[in-house]
């Protein structure tokens, strides 16, 4: 396309302005995290204080809460992924009575907000003595992730060439083997995208762990940060350092696998 040199340089100005708008808050909190905690602080390197991260880590007991977050994420991701692959395989490659209505039932779950289920979940699971356990925090998130995962994996299985399945079936492969030794290996990009999205949503979730573990036995890292904020109102540098720590795992993953994040969040949103 032919455009003027003026227009092109304007474009660069616009790019830079909006990139700065997106980055400014992130840079601000990073710089705040590196500020001295008090005016007589020592141990700075070139006026920056990376020791704040270590202090926030110990003071907020983040080793413990990061471990909880990792446990919850691992359970949610693995269970939801397995269930979604199986259900998506059924919806995407098999014909059976009621498949249409059942699929719509799963689609419904994409629209139900956490706010609508969290109240009875708490009171019913308390009745069963399950609040303050891993299950109370993980199971509702597994259910939400399955709604998206089934929709996502079905879309993948529908695009897999039928000839591939036919050839394998003629060779005597059972559906179970067709799934795990042919379709899943080929569909690795789709599986990776689903895995990173589920991990991000679980790691960043706030309301469910807040409600389902009132005594803090299964407090995840974002909740620990909210609590840390209440205890360190004046300690700006420490709080900023803690916030960076909580965001870091997902941000690192994003920088490594950004294509999966962007593709997943854009395509996942485009419903049929």
């Amino acid at each position: 396309m032919i455009t003027s040199r003026f227009e092109r340089s304007m474009n660069y100005v616009i790019l830079v302005v909006f990139a700065v708008f997106a980055l400014a808050p992130i840079v601000t909190i990073l710089l705040t995290a590196l500020q001295p905690q008090s005016s007589d602080a020592t141990g700075g390197v070139l006026g920056l204080y990376p020791g704040n991260f270590a202090d926030a880590w110990t003071e907020g007991d983040f080793a413990r809460y990061m471990r909880t977050s990792l446990t919850v994420s691992a359970v949610v991701v693995s269970v939801a992924l397995l269930c979604s692959i199986l259900a998506g395989y059924a919806f995407g490659t098999m014909q059976f009575c009621g498949s249409g209505p059942l699929f719509y039932l799963f689609l419904l779950g994409l629209m139900v907000p956490t706010e609508a289920i969290v109240v009875p979940l708490f009171y019913d699971l308390r009745e069963l003595g399950l609040t303050n356990t891993l299950w109370a925090v993980a199971l509702p998130q597994i259910a939400q992730s399955i709604a998206f995962g089934t929709y996502w994996m079905r879309a993948y299985f529908r695009t897999s060439p039928p000839s591939l399945i036919e050839a394998a079936t003629l060779d005597g492969a059972k559906p179970w083997r067709v799934l795990w030794s042919i379709l899943v290996p080929i569909g690795r990009p789709a599986v990776v995208t689903l895995t990173v999205l589920t991990f991000m949503w679980t790691w960043n979730e706030f309301l469910i762990p807040l409600v389902m573990s009132p005594n803090g036995a299964f407090r995840t890292a974002p909740l620990a940060l909210a609590l840390f904020k209440g205890q360190h109102v004046q300690a700006t540098a420490l709080l900023a350092a803690a916030a960076v720590l909580v965001a870091l795992p997902v941000v690192i993953l994003y920088l490594l696998l950004q294509r999966h994040f962007i593709r997943g969040m854009l395509e996942g949103a485009v419903r049929e």
């Binding site: 808050p25 909190i29 960043n204 900023a240 997902v250 994003y254």
Partner: peptide, 17 residues
């Protein structure tokens, strides 16, 4: 990559910032 970044940061962290 840069403008999409706010989407992946936990809302609690965004709020603290």
């Amino acid at each position: 990559t840069v403008v999409f970044l706010p989407q992946v940061i936990a809302m609690v962290v965004v709020a603290v910032a």
